[in-house]
Design a protein around this nucleic acid. Structure first.
Lengths: 130, 130
DNA sequence: TTTGATGCAAATGTTTTGCATGCAA
DNA sequence: TTGCATGCAAAACATTTGCATCAAA
């Protein structure tokens, strides 16, 4: 098994994800990191994102719109996607991990967890409706 | 707005999805429909799948493994994905739609629903572990 | 007939990968 | 010095689309 060496690019990606709540796509991350590392390549961004996901330092979100988004917040929380503007946000809500028990009730396998995505209209799009 | 005409290919796709619980990918559906329509093209399969999704006759599942899967069962139910073999199955369980209220409690927007995917080990992979 | 559906192939968009070079240890 | 990480470009992959032709209504 190979050792993981420090890299400024990876550090910058991690740093960027720690300080945004936007749940950016790989391409958005690429555009932003380029401000600091103009020569960084998309391939490097992808390689580092996958590495960070494997290490559990960031989370990969499989969105409805097809492409992946990344989240630097790794503690248990839930996401919301706006059906109108596509924005993805964190939800401040109490735990719903009890649904794992509900799901496991009549199931012969083992339930380890769940991925839950809520959808509807975000606060901004909701206001526009009035 | 254009009228939707009958097509034997679309009917075959719908029929196939109605009688499988495998949650096949577009490519798997293509391979199967080719047994009946050897000349059908992948493009046609995709076009019809999207059409059926728009009509609410089937459901599209965005899976962890990246590609989409399709489900002919359209009533409210939840899915499970095996982390080991990748199999996707339906879960027989009571409704958890109350989580929409929990999610909406401190949220300024509007919650219309949720997409929930459970994961862990399927019954088959679970048994192998013993 | 008219117009939507098809088959085919080319195009698209996202993500991965091979390889020579650069940089961390 | 060793070998992982990078930049670049090509490849891989799932999905969509343009167009001439076919078939439903």
């Amino acid at each position: 098994m190979s050792v993981i060496k420090y890299s400024r690019q990876r550090e910058a990606i991690k740093e960027y994800l720690m300080h945004t709540t936007e749940h950016p796509t790989a391409d958005t991350i690429y555009m932003n990191i380029r401000k600091t590392f103009p020569n960084i390549s998309l391939g490097t961004v992808y390689r580092n994102l996958n590495l960070l996901v494997d290490q559990g330092e960031i989370i990969k979100l499989r969105c409805e719109d097809g492409c992946d988004r990344f989240d630097g917040k790794t503690d248990e929380h839930y996401h919301f996607a706006c059906k109108r503007c596509g924005k993805v946000m964190d939800l401040e809500m109490e735990s719903i991990e009890h649904i794992n028990k509900i799901a496991g009730a009549g199931f012969k396998g083992r339930i380890d967890g769940n991925v839950t995505f809520f959808y509807g209209l975000c606060p901004d799009c909701c206001t526009e409706d009035e």
